[in-house]
Design a binder for these strands. Structure first.
Lengths: 158, 158
DNA sequence: CCAATTAATCATCTCATCATGACGAACACA
DNA sequence: TGTGTTCGTCATGATGAGATGATTAATTGG
């Protein structure tokens, strides 16, 4: 009844949890503002469309990890702790999603039976490694408008 | 209390849902048995270690889709409806995971803003396409022992 | 037709994630 | 010192995936 159009349809495959996506959105917003003053939770909320108190908890977790710095009271808010081009997506989501797990076999057996090392399983490992590599090698700056622009120009794409 | 060591640790990242993995395990088992007679749910349960009634529902869903055939009563059970080398993983999991969704942007925006087509988002699309391609191009036979053996021999791997 | 067998279904339970509202704690500034 | 601002946290609720036990329905073989 109080439903605000649920963000994730049932059965939708997500790879990243909703919470991790919230974290990425918020951090990306902070990076794009490149603000001198901290941004308040309420402003970030409006910008990325995430429930206020929930986002607050997410941001606080990021602050505890040293990814953001937070300050209370007037003039308070959140800021990036470091450079956006040195902050990898994997770091941002690490507190929310256990990406290291699931490294194994598609079918959840710890290791593909030694009897049959199974070529397809190897291909699956390649796939899930691609996910991991993306998260570990892409920085927040790569996702910002300016970052993307730079990369595109650098590649000669119009 | 009655806990049988929960299959998925919290926060674990899962690309495929647990249910989809169950379906794959069961279908793979059926393919490996290559049985002339149908296999009963209880036998499949023991083989793949999945809760009995839950697996029953999963198998039934697969039967409704024409992937399996089911029969009740004595001599009843489940069988593959077609050939294992013509059955793609994507078909098996389609009823459980909406893999087509999430095709878009990492951050859930429907499309990356036209202003900034964002190179990193393109790379993310590549990643999720890799998952889709794997599921759409790999058959159940590719995952069976015999299938894997054949493929390995064919590649000259010892 | 009866009894055993096996899938199909139903009602319910647990749990983690996501979400919300209210309250407490720190901080800036007058 | 006090007041308003803003983060921090707690208690609680909603929802969907996963799981379980009991019951119903179909089928076979005697």
């Amino acid at each position: 009844m109080t439903n605000t159009t649920s963000p994730v349809p049932p059965n939708e495959i997500l790879i990243l949890s909703q919470t991790a996506v919230y974290a990425l959105k918020a951090v990306l917003h902070l990076a794009e503002q490149a603000a001198h003053a901290p941004l308040r939770v309420d402003d970030i909320t409006k910008a990325v469309g995430v429930p206020r108190n929930y986002l607050s908890k997410v941001l606080h977790a990021l602050a505890r990890e040293g990814i953001l710095v937070s300050a209370r009271g007037p003039k308070g808010g959140f800021q990036l702790a470091g450079r956006a081009d040195e902050l990898f997506l994997g770091e941002v989501i690490a507190q929310f999603d256990d990406i290291a797990a699931g490294s194994g076999c598609l079918l959840g057996r710890e290791r593909c039976s030694d009897e049959s090392p199974c070529a397809a399983h190897q291909r699956w490992r390649d796939v899930s490694n691609a996910v991991r590599q993306f998260l570990d090698q892409t920085t927040i700056a790569d996702l910002t408008h300016s970052g993307a622009r730079l990369e595109l120009e650098h590649l000669g794409v119009d």
